[in-house]
Computed example of a mutant assay.
Amino acid sequence: MSKKARIQEIELLRGMAFLAVALQHAIAHYSVVGGVRMEDGVIMTLLLMAAKFAVPVFIFITGMVLFYNYDGPLRYGTFIRKRFSDVLVPYILWSAVYFGISQHWNLGSPAQWGKWAMMLFTGKNSYHLWYVVMIVQFYILFPVFRMLIRRMMKAAPHRLWMILLVLSGLAYLVLLYFRPEIGALLAKADIPFLTPFFNAYADRNFVYFTFYFILGAAAGMFPERWRWAVEKGGVIYLPVFMILFGYYTYILVGSFQMSDGLQINFNLVSLLRPLIAVFLVSSVFVIYRFALQWTRQAGPRAERAMSLLGKYSYGTYLAHALMLRFTYSFDAWWFAGWNVALRMLVSFIICVVLSYLLTVALSYLPFGKWTAGVSSLRKRTSPPKAA
């Protein structure tokens, strides 16, 4: 893999995506606590819709970075080993931590080790680890995606490439539309692996997130064209984003029910719905445009902060569910009398700070890369040999 110039806005995108994930999880917790009022529900709904871009942007970044960096010969063994050390090892260790919290480790029990292994494979050790299981599928299948996309581009004239991208997006919407029927058909067939893969584990099935990866691939292969499309295409995606943002805010608030307190159901905006997918694709453009503009205007200090925000984003993602547990304890001690939306925001901020502090601290340990996903230790350089 040849050394290429960094895509500066990627670091900010990574950091923003992590913040959006942490915010969503804080909202999910506080939307069901006692004392939620209508105004709390409206605020949390607005914040949730603003943060829905997190998973699509993470997948988009993966596609963009892979197709940008690996445009030459690909050594698959080296590629997979790097992902194993950078992504899977921290995931395995953090999965053991979360399993111990929820199940209480009995290291001498083979049955418990088997249960942990199954939950590790399915991403069930904590509510946020499903994403790692899903994104690893893209890493494993990256050579297949690269081969297919290259062959399609080679077979089609340049002027049709944009049309092919649009058609792939439409095919993705059709796939999501027929997802229930696909699941029902496979449930009836009862095929080992495939049936649960498209039913019980549909939310971590790479097939249902493929278009965000393809969109990232297009951006990674042609970054300048992508930036041009982001800057010039606002007349298309901005109205779509704003209309759907308003529409889903309206139907969510309209779905609130009052019975022994406000009952909030955010399932109406789950990721695997066709119209939500249109909103999420538009949000990728909106967030990228913001990151691009902010990066261009940023000074040296802001660039440094942006780089750190992205550098530690994977470690903070793995750790933030544990940090949220701590923030809920702080909330019970200190903020119980506050309104719920404010408690949620304070817990979110504390979680982010704690997650970054822990990840940075872990990264300075000898095996920091295995726990934080990145090492902050400087590599030792060997002294020059005497002539």
Rank of each mutant, 00 (worst) to 15 (best):
L308C: 05
V340K: 11
V65E: 10
D190H: 12
G368I: 05
V136Y: 01
F367I: 13
G254K: 09
L324H: 09
A17N: 11
Y288N: 14
F53M: 01
Q24W: 03
Y201D: 08
G100P: 08
S259M: 09
S270R: 06
E231H: 14
R75Q: 02
T195I: 08
Y139R: 00
Y237V: 00
L275G: 04
R151I: 02
E224F: 04
A332F: 08
G41T: 06
G35V: 00
P196Y: 12
L318K: 13
Q8S: 10
S282P: 07
V133K: 00
M49K: 04
F206V: 12
V269D: 12
Q297R: 10
K115E: 12
E231M: 15
F209D: 08
A22E: 07
L175H: 01
S307M: 05
F211P: 10
M306E: 05
L272C: 06
L19S: 03
V269F: 12
V269N: 11
W294E: 07
S95K: 02
Q24F: 05
I61S: 08
V346H: 03
F178G: 12
L170G: 04
A291D: 04
L165P: 10
L164M: 15
Y201E: 07
L160D: 10
T45M: 05
P73K: 13
A291N: 02
V174N: 10
G63R: 03
H29R: 12
M118T: 12
L46G: 14
Q137D: 08
A155P: 09
I182V: 14
W228P: 01
Y131D: 05
L324Q: 11
S282I: 03
F367N: 11
R296F: 04
N267D: 15
I101G: 10
F266L: 14
R159T: 12
Q103A: 15
S307Q: 03
G220S: 06
V87F: 01
